[in-house]
């Protein structure tokens, strides 16, 4: 399960005992792992009823909220780590969300599908939109309203006043540090507020 390995790879970036806010926490799997394996505490934010229920079944604290409405519930720097994994591509106000992430957390960690992964480039060069494991939807029914690349994010981070402290790609559950924009289907960025 490369998704599981991906979660664990990112989970291991979270310092032991951190207070964590997981934006778009899904079924709460990562938060549960962080609680049990790394002594973390905190909350998940999730909009979907089924996922909220799944979190509660796992014993993960979850707050049902639409991320588009911002993070007014949370004070500045109230978390050690704010996670935003595979969430960014669903949000309208990307830049604002990143700034909010940096505001409430000392560290932000973001992951998203890298559109510049080489099979995607080939597919587009062949005239069609890519349908892959990282981007599994047809162009007409995708819930992803933003597609960007590893390199694009570096630009946005700079514009949003974020200091990237680490970044890499993930491909098949493994870290890719050499040419990640070309070789990885998933981009991961760890950043602080400048």
């Amino acid at each position: 399960m490369s998704e599981r390995r991906e979660l664990k790879l990112i989970g291991e970036m979270v310092p032991l005992g951190s207070r964590v806010l997981d934006l778009g926490c899904g079924n709460g799997e990562l938060l549960q792992w962080l609680q049990q394996q790394r002594g973390c505490s905190g909350y998940g934010i999730e909009i979907d009823d089924t996922q909220v229920h799944a979190c509660m079944q796992r014993g993960v604290n979850v707050i049902q909220r639409n991320l588009e409405e911002g993070l007014a519930l949370f004070d500045d720097r109230s978390f050690d780590v704010v996670l935003q994994l595979q969430t960014l591509q669903h949000l309208r106000n990307t830049s604002n969300m990143l700034r909010e992430t940096a505001r409430v957390g000392r560290i932000g960690i973001v992951s998203f599908p890298n559109f510049a992964h080489w099979p995607n480039r080939l597919r587009v060069a062949g005239g069609r939109m890519p349908v892959t494991k990282a981007l599994p939807y047809e162009w007409h029914d995708t819930p992803n309203i933003r597609v960007g690349t590893y390199a694009d994010f570096e630009v946005l981070a700079r514009k949003s006043g974020l200091q990237v402290v680490d970044s890499f790609g993930i491909q098949d559950g493994r870290v890719v540090r050499r040419w990640p924009n070309l070789r990885a289907s998933v981009a991961v960025f760890k950043f602080e507020r400048q």
């Binding site: 505490s41 009823d49 509660m56 604290n61 979850v62 707050i63 049902q64 519930l73 949370f74």
Partner: peptide
């Protein structure tokens, strides 16, 4: 209800919140 949730979060108290449509 969100005011209550915020007050709890500010105190780092364990809370879950469901907003049922």
């Amino acid at each position: 209800s969100r005011e209550i949730v915020k007050a709890l979060v500010d105190n780092r108290i364990a809370v879950s919140y469901a907003e049922i449509a």
